[in-house]
Structure formats: structure tokens, C-alpha cells
Simulated scan of single mutants.
Amino acid sequence: MSAKTKLPTGQEAIEVKGWLGAHRYLILRRLSQSFFLFLFLMGPWFGIWWVVGTLAGSRTFGVLPLTDPLVLMQGLAAGHWPELTAIIGALIVLAVYALIGGRVYCSWVCPINPVTDAAHWLHDKLGLQKGWQPKRSTRYWILGAVFAVSALTGTIAWEVVNPVTMVHRGLVFGMGFAWALVAAIFVFDLLVARRGWCGHLCPVGAFYGLLGSKSLLRVSAVDRAACDDCMDCFAVCPENQVISPALRGKPGETPLILSPDCTNCGRCIDVCSVDVFAFTHRFDNHVKTDEQVADKAA
């Protein structure tokens, strides 16, 4: 570690890139999350029905069907054969997330993400302990339980308690219990388990991680020789176990973050003052040489 670890997280990047440059992907994510949520709310709130439905299943401009594959698979497990439009919608979503990375949904679309990010920010500000950390495999066990319960009950089980669906319905019909559920997730991440919900429990994140395990879009530590050990990327990454293999890899080892846990949030790119990280594709194993790093510094 270097003396730079004593600086507040992201401070060096702000000094080098400016505040906007050190938060560009964070800002874009918030705009993206707001945009997708607003698309679904324009109809009930303003009578502009560009999109009808929810993130579980929708139709855009009366033509484009989109279906959450997890919802479709729960329906199949429950013994319900879906309509053709639902199957087409699920195939479209499968293709998109298989291409760009399934957990892009978690960081760029899911409206619960700002809640868990806020809990993590406050957790750091208060200097709280790490807390209880369930095994990351727990979310896969919960995912399996979702399918099992769907099969046993003949229902789409997760949608009964899915906080994303409940928030959407709450914003349309009145929040009610949805507020309590959102508050519970916030408190859980703040006081019980740091980044506990998204990183250890949510079956949706587990499902989309598996879906995008071979996706094209990747983050690469292309300039890892320039790393100054400030540790800011580890501090901001919601799944920081994915960074080390790419950043600390030996010569000849891939600089790509290939773990399905990566959400492609771009925060590691934001907070790195020496631009170690960049978005690329999974076939780009290029790593900058020491000579190129020296030329850049010069």
C-alpha cells in the first residue's frame, strides 16, 4: 500500500480529473436508472403509454415485448406455459444481457441499487464495522429456492416479495409496505452486512450474473503497470473480489475482469487517477507495457 491510501476515496481522481470526471459513470448510472423507471411511470402518472408493464414484463410502443427471463423461468417451474410474446420478450432480454453482461441490470437499471449504494456511503461515513458477511454463494441457494418454491406452489414466487416490483407498484398505487421493504434493505446494508443485499442475497443479481458470464462487454486493467496502490478501486467496487485477478495478474495473465459478479458499474474507472481501468471486450487481452506507461507519465 502507498501513502495515498490515507486520502479520502476518490480524492486523487477528483484532483486529477475534476469532480465530473471522477464521477462520470456514477452520474450516467443514476440517469440510466431514473430513465428506465420514468419510462414505466409515464403511463400511470401522465397518460403517456410508451411502455406498458413493469420490469418483469412490458411492451414498448405496442410492438416490442420484453420479459424478465427469471420471471419466465419461474412460470415454467410453476407449470405455466407462457405465451409466444413472452417467450420472444425473454429471448430479446437474454440476448442483450448475454452480450453486455447480465449484472449491468444491477448497476444500470435496478431501482434498488441507489438504495444500497446510499447505505454503503453512509456506512463508510459513519466508520461502521464490516458486519456479518454471508457467503456469496448464498444468493445462488436463494435462487434455487425461488425455483423450488415456484414449482411447489404453482406461483411466480419471487414476484411476491421482489422489492423492485413492489417499489414500482408502490410508486403507482401508493408505497405502503414497499417503503418498509426498501427501508429494511437499507438498514440491512447499513448495520447488518455491508453490501449484503446485492452482493450476497439478491437472487436476481445471481441469475443475471450467470446469464452474462460469457458476455462481450468487460472492464480491463489495461494499464495495470501504472497502478499506484491507492486501493480506491477496491473501496468503491461493490464486488471487490473481482479486481485482484485482473489488477495483480502476472505477465501473460489476462487483465480482463471475467468474473460474472462484476456489475460493469464503471466506478473503478471513475476513481482511478492514473486510468488503470477501461471498458473493452472480452477478446481484448492487451496490456500496456512499462515503456508505454513511462511514455504516458512523461
Rank of each mutant, 00 (worst) to 15 (best):
2 S>W: 13
12 E>N: 13
13 A>T: 04
14 I>G: 04
15 E>N: 01
17 K>W: 01
18 G>W: 00
19 W>R: 00
23 H>W: 06
27 I>M: 00
28 L>N: 00
29 R>F: 00
30 R>H: 00
31 L>S: 00
34 S>W: 02
38 F>H: 15
41 L>F: 10
45 W>E: 02
46 F>G: 15
47 G>S: 08
49 W>G: 09
50 W>C: 04
51 V>S: 05
56 A>P: 02
59 R>F: 08
59 R>E: 10
63 V>T: 10
68 D>W: 09
71 V>W: 09
77 A>V: 11
78 A>K: 15
79 G>E: 13
80 H>F: 01
81 W>I: 02
82 P>L: 04
87 I>L: 05
90 A>D: 14
91 L>F: 13
91 L>Y: 13
92 I>F: 15
94 L>E: 10
95 A>R: 15
97 Y>S: 09
101 G>T: 06
101 G>N: 05
103 R>Q: 10
105 Y>I: 02
106 C>V: 11
109 V>R: 05
110 C>I: 10
111 P>L: 04
112 I>S: 14
114 P>A: 01
116 T>C: 08
116 T>H: 12
122 L>K: 14
124 D>I: 04
125 K>Q: 07
125 K>H: 05
129 Q>H: 05
132 W>T: 05
132 W>G: 10
133 Q>T: 06
135 K>G: 13
136 R>S: 03
142 I>F: 13
147 F>S: 05
147 F>C: 06
148 A>V: 12
154 G>E: 04
157 A>M: 08
162 N>G: 07
164 V>D: 07
167 V>T: 09
167 V>E: 02
169 R>P: 11
170 G>D: 04
170 G>P: 08
171 L>E: 07
171 L>H: 14
171 L>G: 12
173 F>N: 15
177 F>R: 15
183 A>K: 08
183 A>E: 02
185 I>K: 07
187 V>Y: 06
191 L>N: 07
193 A>F: 03
197 W>Q: 03
198 C>T: 03
200 H>G: 06
204 V>N: 09
205 G>Y: 06
206 A>R: 05
207 F>P: 13
211 L>R: 15
212 G>V: 05
215 S>P: 03
218 R>M: 02
218 R>C: 08
220 S>K: 01
226 A>C: 06
226 A>M: 04
227 C>N: 07
229 D>W: 06
229 D>N: 11
229 D>E: 09
230 C>V: 04
231 M>L: 11
235 A>E: 12
239 E>V: 13
241 Q>D: 09
241 Q>R: 11
243 I>E: 03
245 P>E: 04
247 L>P: 15
249 G>A: 11
253 E>R: 14
257 I>Q: 14
258 L>G: 07
265 C>K: 00
265 C>Y: 00
270 D>F: 04
270 D>G: 08
272 C>S: 02
274 V>N: 13
275 D>T: 10
283 F>D: 01
285 N>F: 11
285 N>V: 09
291 E>M: 11
291 E>R: 14
292 Q>H: 00
297 A>W: 01
